[in-house]
Amino acid sequence: MRSLNYEGTVVFFRNGRLESMKYSHASAPDREQERLISLNSPLREIVRNGDLVSCRYNDTQTVVFDHRPFEHSFLVNFSSHLDALANLYDFALSGEEDVAMFPAYVIDIQPKDEFRYARRIWVEKLQFLPLKITVYDLSGALLEQVVFTEQHVKEALPFSEVKPEDANRSGRAIKESVPGALRFAVKNPPAGFKEVYFARRTMHDSRLPVEHLRMSDGLASVSVYVENKNPEIESGPRSVGAVNFYSRNLDDYQVTAMGEVPPLTVKTIAEGIGLKNGGR
């Protein structure tokens, strides 16, 4: 996935909606880039250069940037340490099928506990590229699907040159992280979930900093946000498609955990959040 140049049309099924996008992955010895171009409204282009992700909206020419050092692909993220994943998931070769007219291996990924979802991945036999990825809830119902309708491996693909300065010209500047140490601790998270990324930044067009902690088990991930109390955010569980949320009050702060994981996972993580030294 990281070393080949390939492109195609991808259909995303998320949150009960279907969306078709053109996908391309360009690779060079010193860089790697992913691009998604929407085929329907709202028209936009999303580009990932390393840990910098940009989104350009065609109607307004607005460009928004975000740093995502914890993600490596728009399609599927795997830890480079598969041995650690084996402690949390069972991997099994369950058959062979054709996807986008390519023969593929079908790999089932079953969690060993109730804190993560099952997945199935169709891997093309020759180049070992993913052709289809599905996510299932604890009852086995389909939550999310990504599938190539066509895919082509190329000798080379062009890189799209998008620079953070473009955001300034569009009137939307990148939200920079604010230095500082983590002011809260996560007690007794579900097995395998570890802290992989932390930033303190301004969000929601607010000048007040929001702490963002990303946790991952190497396949599934959860974001934790700690901010000043927001009366617009209701405490308790919520869900949007495959993404579950859980919010609670903690002194003068609002804690929200969210991710494509079961409701119990985000609740366990949110309930385990505690402030260090009174949150100062």
Rank of each mutant, 00 (worst) to 15 (best):
P29S: 01
P29E: 01
R31H: 01
E34C: 02
E34Y: 05
E34A: 04
R35D: 00
R35L: 01
R35I: 06
L36W: 01
L36I: 03
I37Y: 06
I37M: 00
I37K: 10
S41P: 08
P42L: 01
L43R: 05
R44L: 02
R44M: 02
R44V: 02
I46G: 03
R48E: 00
R48S: 01
N49D: 00
N49F: 00
G50K: 03
D51C: 09
L52W: 03
V53W: 08
V53K: 10
S54L: 07
Y57P: 00
Y57M: 07
Y57Q: 03
N58I: 10
N58D: 09
T60H: 03
Q61C: 08
T62R: 13
T62K: 13
V63F: 09
V63P: 10
V63K: 10
V64S: 07
V64A: 11
V64F: 00
V64R: 12
F65Y: 09
D66A: 14
D66S: 12
H67K: 13
H67E: 06
R68M: 12
P69W: 05
P69D: 08
P69M: 06
F70R: 11
S73P: 06
F74Y: 07
F74I: 03
N77M: 01
N77K: 04
F78I: 10
F78Y: 14
S79E: 09
H81S: 14
H81N: 15
H81Q: 14
H81G: 13
D83V: 15
D83G: 13
A84K: 15
A84L: 10
A84F: 11
L85A: 04
D90M: 15
D90H: 15
D90I: 15
D90L: 15
F91P: 01
A92D: 05
L93K: 10
L93Q: 11
G95H: 05
E96K: 15
E97Q: 14
E97R: 15
M101I: 11
V106E: 04
I109R: 11
I109Q: 07
D113H: 09
Y117A: 07
A118T: 07
I121R: 02
V123G: 06
V123T: 08
V123C: 04
E124S: 01
K125I: 00
L129S: 07
L129H: 05
P130N: 06
L131Y: 02
